[in-house]
Computed example of a mutant assay.
Amino acid sequence: MKFYNRFIRTFQDVPEHTTLLIHSLSGCLLHCYGCHNYEEIIARTPREHKTKEDLYLYLKKSGFLFDAVMFSGGEFLIDKLDEITDLLQVVRNVFTGRIVIATCGVYNKKIKHLIDQDLVDGIHVDMKLPYHLLDPVEDQDIFQDVMGIKPNQQLINNLLDSIDTVIAHNSPIDQVRTVKYPILADVFFEEIRKYIETRKNYYNSGVPYFLNQFVSPE
């Protein structure tokens, strides 16, 4: 498993926590509209990189400087589950803070496994479209424009299941997030918000929902 050559300390990604942001170089299934990381991390993977051993050493030496680590990408969960599990088990042993994963939600079974094994404290999952209202055939152009993929019903089911899993987990550092893509009408974001509120009520969950403004990568 390879990581971006610079670990980034941030004060915004996990509210009320100083966080070490770690970008996986393993790739991503998606090519989302305006993705900031696509060119540098996915399309042209940097030659120089950090290894998991570099990460463990950094956490041992400098872990006192932050109280959370966030694994992002690309898509961190694209790697084999055994490799992800082994990595997070070591991080649990050498780091006393919170472990957070940012994900698109495609790998719903991996999310459940990591939660069940207590290898993650929080999940930040993206809900990029009102999946529950879209048809994988009739609305495939919308998926292509926003997420860069041709969908199928199983993919949509996985995405919705991940959102339910995060809402039900109900950790103080879980999040459901949406980027306010400028190519979508406001009704898309209103439908996402209503869906999240309905699921939160169902699970009696306090997981926050964030509608983040789109920032152009240029």
Rank of each mutant, 00 (worst) to 15 (best):
Y4A: 05
C35T: 13
D139C: 09
E197M: 13
E138P: 00
D161C: 06
Q144I: 05
D54A: 13
R98K: 15
K200V: 08
V176R: 02
E48A: 10
P151I: 09
R177G: 11
N93M: 03
S162I: 01
H23F: 15
F7Y: 13
I99F: 03
R199C: 03
N37M: 10
Q12C: 12
D135Q: 08
K112F: 06
K150S: 11
R9W: 03
P217C: 10
V187A: 09
I183S: 06
Q117S: 14
R193N: 11
T178S: 13
M1I: 07
V176F: 08
P217H: 10
L59H: 06
H31Q: 12
G206E: 12
P46D: 09
Y131R: 04
P130T: 00
F66E: 04
I123M: 10
K60T: 14
V100I: 14
G122W: 01
Q117F: 12
K80S: 09
A68D: 05
P136Q: 07
Q117W: 09
L88Y: 08
D118W: 12
F71C: 06
G122H: 00
E39Q: 14
I115D: 01
L55D: 01
H169S: 08
V176H: 03
T178M: 04
R98S: 14
D118H: 15
G27N: 09
D186K: 11
D126V: 08
D79E: 15
L25F: 10
E75M: 10
P182Y: 11
C32S: 11
F11C: 07
E53I: 10
V125R: 02
L81T: 14
S24C: 05
N158K: 11
Y209M: 08
L119W: 07
R44K: 15
P130Q: 01
C104D: 13
F66N: 04
K109E: 15
T178D: 03
D116Y: 12
T19M: 08
V125T: 12
G206M: 08
I149G: 02
T198I: 09
V187K: 08
I196R: 01
A102V: 12
D126H: 07
P182M: 12
C32G: 11
G63R: 06
E40P: 01
L87V: 11
D79M: 15
R9G: 05
Y131S: 07
F66R: 08
